[in-house]
Design a protein around this nucleic acid. Structure first.
Lengths: 232, 232
DNA sequence: GTCTATATCGGGATAGAC
DNA sequence: GTCTATCCCGATATAGAC
């Protein structure tokens, strides 16, 4: 209790390290709990003592990833570049960090569509991670001088940008072009188009369209579990 | 051989019926092959004799669904209503048909995001089903008199409408509002907005924007496995 | 050709002994 | 806290009844 490093912590870390390593190299499905236990030199039962399920190990992976990316994200936000560059940089951090785990993420995103699945980026369990990431986009918007977002749209924009990022990541995971060139192109072109759209979204002429779009966004958000009201 | 109804067909149908029933009531993961065999009153071996895997039973479900919906879809296309109504009717057929299987579809869509998974609506295995459905949307476009789609956009529109439909279905599956009211609202409003967008997409003023969007669509299609070139 | 019974394997998860 | 033994399930394989 008094010592900072207990034996149990070391065991726990050893299991997690072994798991993440195998997840990265072999993927999620291919990695077995028996394999993890063997690599960590503990029994199967011990592995389950520390992590209730294979999914729990994935949650730990998410947490670690967000922690590791935080300083790089701060660096991206600290630069004085324009809005498009800053958002592009935020997204690039993710792509670079997840590059070695691309296959693993692929296996994970099988569960992505189901917000009831703990591992889904839309689940309650991943909520804090998701919100932390959306706050980064919010800061990019707040500090940008070259793009002024209409007031009705701005409360939704962090979420929308995050969603856009998730779409890109999904595309990237299944992109089979060499070096995922296709995703890079799509990322650049779509971001330019998106920022262009935001810039003209203030035009008075577009007011009715804008209103309808915001209505739709509010409506869509209302039906999700991570919206304002949580239960049902 | 000569008799229309062979014993094997009856057995096969019994297994499929039992499976679909259990899928609907209990969900995909919770339904076991042993359970299916027991409900169909055949041995486990027999179940595997007719269906190579649990996934095969799901494929049979898809096939059945498309067959069952075909006449209703034809009826929707036969009406002389406008474009928005016709597309709305096409989509409504799906919602009504899949209503009793909503939970089951939820379990399925765990695999949806992975185009390499056979059960994914984006997979090679489901390709013919997907294309058949897209053709329906193509017919709705072709016969519509109130909406003229720009030439650059029209080859992509059946796919885009199908994708839009899939998005709505995904939303619907996880919609927890009573009677999935939320989805109905979203469906109506988004379709109106979409058709409105299509109508103004012909304006000469929007030509540069249109070009960029089409470029983006072509780019995105190029990276998918169900695009023009199939392998890699 | 149709079907049963049964054995086997790999893998996630759990119970209970120590 | 750790391990062994066990269970369940999907999947495969096989031998043989009819």
């Amino acid at each position: 209790m008094t010592r900072p490093i207990k034996k149990s912590e070391a065991t726990c870390a050893r299991i997690l390290d072994a798991a993440l390593d195998m997840f990265r190299t072999r993927g999620f499905e291919e990695t077995t709990m028996r394999g993890i236990a063997a690599a960590a030199e503990v029994s199967l039962g011990s592995a389950y003592y520390y992590f209730e399920s294979k999914e729990d190990l994935v949650m730990a992976f998410y947490e670690r990833a967000m922690e590791a990316m935080a300083p790089r994200i701060e660096a991206a936000l600290a630069s004085t570049a324009g809005f498009e560059e800053t958002v592009g940089a935020l997204i690039t951090v993710k792509f670079e960090y997840f590059q070695p785990s691309r296959n693993f993420l692929g296996a994970l995103l099988k569960h992505a569509a189901d917000p009831r699945n703990r591992l889904s980026p839309f689940s309650k369990a991943t909520r804090s991670i998701r919100e932390r990431d959306q706050v980064y986009f919010g800061r990019a918007i707040a500090q940008s001088r070259d793009v002024r977002v209409p007031d009705e749209l701005s409360p939704h924009l962090p979420m929308l940008l995050w969603l856009y990022q998730m779409g890109l990541i999904l595309y990237w995971i299944y992109d089979r072009s060499p070096g995922q060139r296709q995703t890079r192109l799509l990322r650049e072109k779509s971001l330019a188009l998106l920022v262009g759209g935001l810039k003209i979204s203030r035009f008075a002429l577009l007011k009715p369209l804008r209103t309808k779009i915001v209505e739709l966004i509010v409506l869509a958000e209302g039906g999700t579990s991570h919206g304002a009201s949580e239960d049902a």
